[in-house]
């Protein structure tokens, strides 16, 4: 008995190349599935298979148009060339959140950690690269103005694929600017009364029980 599927015409054959190998697959497959199906070797940059871990970064060429994306969320198309990208290189911007004692000097610190952030030339490379449609450029501009809460909000859906970092000619590392903005917003400003109250209750209980202070932190 023939089977009806949601997929419609999934018997259509599609030819494309993955990492330089000619591959013959059926329509409806994702690029990850196509690579597995064809036995393309060395595909180890795959993680969650639902578009939230940012591992399976690919570069695609349709005719003369080059783009990037996530292989587990991109479907096969005839004639495209696909290259699975290697993992991102080590970060160039270094900071330790424990070093930040005073929130008044955070703006100066931001610009010393990310000196390139104020040099955006508005090329839209990062915006085009983002598989989550984040307004990356606006987010970086907000951070450079010291508006970290809003900047972090712009990066809310960031999946850490770091494709914007690759796309940026000024080496701004927008994904890390976004994450920095989100982290210091929580680090300095999240002081929930219900949590603080409960922590204090538990501390007093430990003192009463004679357990003393915790030495953990």
């Amino acid at each position: 008995m023939s089977t009806a599927t949601h997929e419609g015409d999934n018997r259509t054959h599609i030819s494309l190349t993955i990492n330089g190998l000619a591959v013959d697959v059926t329509a409806g497959m994702t690029l990850v599935e196509a690579a597995w199906h064809a036995g393309v070797p060395g595909i180890t940059g795959v993680g969650c298979l639902e578009g939230v871990c940012g591992s399976c970064r690919v570069m695609l060429r349709r005719d003369k148009v080059v783009s990037v994306g996530l292989a587990c969320q991109t479907f096969v198309e005839s004639g495209i060339e696909v290259i699975f990208l290697p993992a991102a290189s080590a970060p160039r911007h270094h900071y330790d959140i424990n070093d930040f004692k005073d929130s008044w000097d955070i703006h100066a610190r931001f610009h010393s950690i990310f000196p390139e952030a104020s040099r955006c030339r508005h090329c839209h490379g990062c915006v085009g690269a983002c598989p989550k449609d984040i307004s990356v450029e606006d987010g970086v501009a907000l951070a450079a103005q010291g508006r970290y809460r809003e900047a972090g909000e712009a990066f809310f859906e960031c999946v850490m694929c770091e494709l914007c970092d690759v796309a940026c000619p000024e080496l701004i590392a927008p994904a890390h600017v976004g994450l920095f903005s989100r982290r210091i917003t929580a680090h300095f400003h999240l002081r929930p009364p219900n949590l603080i109250t409960r922590l204090e209750e538990l501390r007093q209980k430990r003192v009463e029980m004679g357990e003393g202070e915790r030495d953990e932190d």
Partner: peptide
Amino acid sequence: PDVLRWLIHLGMQFELTASGDL
């Protein structure tokens, strides 16, 4: 509760009520 404090210290955000409670 201390796990939440540790995560916030590292920079994790949570949903808040209008009065700033978690």
